[in-house]
Design a protein around this nucleic acid. Structure first.
Lengths: 211, 211
DNA sequence: TTATGTGAAAGGATTCACAGCC
DNA sequence: GGCTGTGAATCCTTTCACATAA
């Protein structure tokens, strides 16, 4: 299964959720319009997983949502741990969309600071030395990393060693994980830096210069 | 110029910055190891923009950093505005890596709330009605969107109309921008949802099942 | 008639492999 | 000898276009 396809499915789901109570049926043309993708791509993507549409009609929005949730494994709750309860970590714990999407942080960890023993957004903050035990006991497979760059790889190694199989990395480093462990980086600075390329001087000159 | 290439350059830059004061020369093999990319890809990517290496040696780290900064338009400061000074917006304004990377928020905007007139992380919060004037006066080309999904497209339209050419969108919507305007989405929930696909049941079964 | 699902074709991106230079 | 820069080859992704079904 191509990974690019898997990465688009959450976008389909997000778009469908937003229209669920206004639209019953949608076709690949209309969904493509909202997502800025071609209808063919949407049909091809979905066809990897089954036949969810009706010819001459389109896709039932409610049904397609259910199917996508099932395919993505979102028809259950996922427990997460977060490591690094600095300003960024606290903001992530307070970010309401995770719990609303079925991702529940059950514990947060920090190396020391006055944070240990407190609660942030209802999540208890423990010392990192407790990480392996908690991950094992609670059967946790997702970790969020929000520690300084200098500590990120070590923390990721610790998470992997404890049994975590998916890592959402907010630290601005190119981390290494073994095969079988998934990693997604969140770096808004990198995102911004990939746009300035098109902004430097007049973008029209950059893009359409005949020289 | 392939967009995937442009999107990798900030990753090269980030990795090089981290080793700058420990390493003078790096070759494509070593840089590939740290970034989990093939040496050929790194050489090919760089070759789109010029010849920065020395045969038999590799790349001078300091020089390559300078070249990448120049290519990406990062050899200057970029002014930004942020729209949506809720909890997420305030966290973004407080995120220290933007200013440290040359991205300076000069103003933030909100629709009403008690925020207007205050400062967040040193950034004045103004009413959204002032947005066009500020963007024009300050010559701002980058906007950050952290409003609720229901208002995101309208805010993005307003930013584009005001003259912004690049948008970092934290709202969980598939926004539309006209040609010539760049858009990057930051959605950690989408990132997490694209990992659960590999977690559901035993990932080994998913990936290596012979049936 | 309309829109899906899908092989086939086209288009892009990555990797290979080696000439050329340090 | 070692590593870059780069055409050629391979691999992967997207789009086309149409048979098929509602």
């Amino acid at each position: 299964m191509p990974e690019v396809v898997v990465m688009r499915l959450p976008l389909y789901l997000r778009a469908l959720n937003l229209i669920e109570d206004r639209v019953d049926i949608i076709n690949s043309q209309e969904l493509g319009d909202t997502l800025q993708l071609t209808p063919a791509q949407i049909r091809k993507d979905l066809s990897y997983f089954g036949k969810f549409g009706k010819q001459g009609r389109g896709y039932n929005v409610r049904t397609l949502i259910q199917e996508l949730r099932r395919i993505l494994g979102l028809d259950r709750e996922w427990k997460m741990v977060l490591v690094g309860v600095g300003r960024l970590g606290r903001a992530i714990l307070a970010y309401g969309r995770f719990p609303r999407s079925g991702f529940v942080a059950v514990a947060a960890f920090d190396a020391d600071s006055g944070m240990v023993g407190k609660k942030v957004a209802g999540v208890p903050v423990l010392h990192v030395s407790d990480l392996p035990a908690v991950v094992a006991r609670e059967g946790i497979s997702i970790g969020i990393v929000s520690v300084p760059p200098s500590h990120a790889q070590q923390v990721i190694d610790d998470l992997v060693h404890a049994g975590v199989k998916a890592i959402l990395n907010y630290a601005p480093v190119a981390a290494k994980v073994p095969p079988g462990v998934k990693l997604r980086d969140i770096d808004p600075v990198v995102a911004a830096q990939s746009m300035t390329y098109y902004l430097k001087q007049d973008s029209a000159v950059e893009e359409f210069s005949p020289y």
